[in-house]
Design a protein around this nucleic acid. Structure first.
Ligand code: MN
Ligand code: MN
Ligand code: ZN
Ligand code: ZN
Lengths: 141, 141
DNA sequence: TTATTTGTTTGGAATAATTCTAATGTTGTG
DNA sequence: CACAACATTAGAATTATTCCAAACAAATAA
């Protein structure tokens, strides 16, 4: 069996034809494609492929950690006063954004010959408040 | 003179009424608002305010470094095979995304009580290829 | 096997964020 | 004042993404 199929199975994703092809594509194309690019590149080989399937599959793969979703905040850009350097934690439940201390200068790894104009570090997950609320709701009565 | 006005002037942005009010808002509201949130919160005080003005102003402020634009990649989400940890550089000219080495584990600054499910570090700027091309085009003939 | 259920894909409509555009308004300069 | 340059407005257009109901496929039970 192809490793693609077993990687999907191990992650708990049923290896449908479309999912195998999309994951295979992601393994072979390290070009950081958009969902639309994946769709365009696969639709010749899979003429009935729907864009919704591409989005569904990419989300499923990302949720299981098989691919990475490169986007800080969803669904819309957030703005912040430019105070001192800091990182951001975005909660996927309440969508609040929290600051955390982070100093970019001390670990500056610019690619040689590139001009870095800005940088961001973003963690995604669940915030303390939302975790607490989830615990309370699941507490036995 | 309000420091808001002079900060705008120092950055080379003409301090129109709308710009002053928007920048003022960003200084006072450290809630990482969306453009729409800024618009909603200001339109009572400035009834004629247009959403386009909010977008224009936020972009101008971000370009001058007075505020930060919290979004990794634009305009659409990009996907990446989940290989080993690395950071991303996105070029604002050609939109290519480059990998650079970065190890998240060695500098793990999780907020206490928060669950971090994923994290990203993104640099934005101009890539070497685009810089080279710009140099060639401006070379004297 | 057939019937039933469960989950997946499809295609198009709906939604939402952002950008574009043309007209109008404002500011500064000669 | 007249003119140019620039900024704002309002709404249309564009784009990315999600939603939805119907068709399809796979798995399971009878
Ligand atoms: Mn912040
Ligand atoms: Mn990468
Ligand atoms: Zn939360
Ligand atoms: Zn470039």
């Amino acid at each position: 069996m192809g490793s693609v199929v077993s990687e999907l199975e191990n992650a708990g994703i049923k290896p449908s034809y479309q999912r195998v092809r999309i994951f295979e594509y992601m393994q072979m194309n390290r070009t950081h494609p958009t969902a639309d690019q994946v769709f365009l590149d696969l639709k010749d080989a899979i003429p009935t492929l729907a864009k919704a399937t591409v989005y569904n599959t990419l989300h499923a793969l990302a949720e299981k950690g098989l691919i990475r979703e490169l986007s800080t905040v969803q669904p819309s850009t957030r703005y912040d006063y430019a105070a001192e350097d800091h990182g951001h934690f975005t909660c996927r439940i309440c969508n609040r954004i929290y600051d955390f201390p982070y100093d970019f200068d001390s670990r500056h790894s610019a690619l040689s010959g590139f001009v870095v104009e800005s940088q961001e570090i973003v963690q995604k997950g669940i915030c303390q408040a939302c975790l607490k609320k989830a615990q309370q709701n699941s507490a036995f009565p």
